[in-house]
Design a binder for these strands. Structure first.
Lengths: 263, 263
DNA sequence: CGCAACTACGTACGTCGTACGTAGATTGGG
DNA sequence: CCCAATCTACGTACGACGTACGTAGTTGCG
């Protein structure tokens, strides 16, 4: 990422008092630049967002971009926050925490689906912009009033979002591998099966062979992102349920004894 | 990553029948190249593993590397598989599945700690090398005999490993941000607090302000990777427990009705 | 022995982000 | 009102990077 302070000013540019400036007016706006960059990334991936390509799309010289944005890293920061700002904000407060959290997960997954290049960006610790802020506020609502203290609330949300990002990244990795090798999973397997069969005999790897081929047959591929997401989300929510719906005990150990935290 | 078939041959190079070759013998071995690359990545990060730098370290010309490895992408594939091959393989079969899985998670986390550049690599779907294979076989043992069918066994392991990678990546992102901004969390906060205070008033973002500052105070930073890992791992295991230790019911719905899989 | 195959490597190309300097437009202060 | 301060836009250029390509030299098989 880029220089944090400079990025902060950029992110909050709309809320910031814009003092009158001396020189000529800018032909474009930061927002327009960011939107063009997002469109470019959506269409051709993050690698296609080069300063030259973006400038060409906007009809300006490459170096003119630097009057809008300090550098490529900061541009990407703003792209991310812009997307966050545009996420849906429903009001599903009436239902149970589980469906609320599920909705949060789905919305985030949808964002990764719509903008696959997000998988190439560090979304865990982006600079704190207005979009991120509003997103955080909104998503925390899903966990309000379920009996978690503030620290646990934050940790739980981080946990859910981390899972969604992780599965989105796995899906993106698979997509990239498929694109690169120019063949689908079936063709890949056909090409490499002979070699693999000779290498990975079921005697050396009995469980791996059994489980691996079972999973492969079930999904029609070595890895099924949709199934991994559906499976994982259930586990994530069940895991949080064990924390939230733990039998009320004002003090003392819960059903299971407390567990030491490993290194 | 690189060309799959060529990479496979490279990965299984030790098990493959090496037919006698015509020309002069190679001065180095693929293994030596890979080990040097790992050392370089450990010391200075994955970006520092340039073909020129690696060649310099090995005392050969940059282009000579291409006689050992088809390209940089394939080199990284082999680096990853080499690390997998060297992971510890204990025999904790006696204990319960939970501590077995916990050990698997810890071992993987330790690998990310020892080699932080792994966070920059797609570890979810690497080419199937001997290291990956042995790792898969070993880690599946933790889930043998707990009553999961083969497909669920694979999904459960993927789930656990995905979590570990996700938290490792978050930790790595934070480390990178710290390095780049040249200041620790305290200094960053001091610098940017005035700006942030003006932007993010607690009236617009009440929950975020409350929870965010509580989490910040508890960890002494905006994000605590160790806590996120400890918290998350408990949830991961609890979530799997809900699947594994589900009350035996030969057929029909479990305690909760089956859930539809979202898009 | 001769030739095919292989290693090692030097040069060079096309890509990238962006530092730097400059020309021209704009506007606030005297 | 004017000019100096200040900002925009941009051209050129630098130092990375991965790696395509061609060549010289070495080895071992037939």
């Amino acid at each position: 990422m880029g220089d944090p302070t400079r990025t902060l000013e950029l992110l909050w540019r709309d809320s910031l008092p814009s003092q009158a400036k001396r020189g000529p007016k800018q032909a474009l706006t930061v927002t327009a630049v960011v939107e063009a960059a997002v469109a470019l990334a959506d269409a051709q991936g993050l690698d296609a967002v080069t300063m030259r390509a973006l400038a060409g799309k906007l009809g300006i010289a490459p170096m003119a971009l630097y009057t809008y944005v300090p550098g490529r890293a900061e541009l990407i920061d703003v792209m991310l926050d812009t997307l966050y700002a545009g996420m849906p904000r429903r009001k599903p407060k009436g239902r149970d925490w589980r469906s609320r959290l599920e909705a949060v997960a789905h919305d985030n997954r949808a964002l990764f689906t719509r903008h696959p290049w997000l998988a190439d960006v560090s979304t865990t610790r982006p600079p704190l912009g207005p979009g991120q802020m509003a997103k955080y506020e909104y998503e925390l609502q899903a966990l309000e009033g379920v009996g978690l203290d503030d620290v646990a609330q934050d940790a739980a949300l981080t946990f859910v979002l981390g899972f969604v990002e992780s599965s989105a990244r796995a899906a993106s990795d698979q997509r990239a591998a498929r694109l690169e090798s120019q063949m689908d999973d079936g063709a890949w397997w056909e090409t490499n099966a002979p070699l693999l069969a000779r290498m990975s005999d079921p005697e050396r790897y009995p469980i791996a062979s059994r489980v691996g081929s079972a999973a492969g047959k079930a999904h029609g591929a070595a890895y099924d992102p949709d199934h991994a997401y559906a499976f994982g989300l259930e586990r994530v929510l069940d895991g949080l349920a064990a924390l939230i719906e733990r039998p009320r005990a004002p003090r003392g150990p819960a059903r299971r004894p407390a567990r030491k935290r490993g290194a």
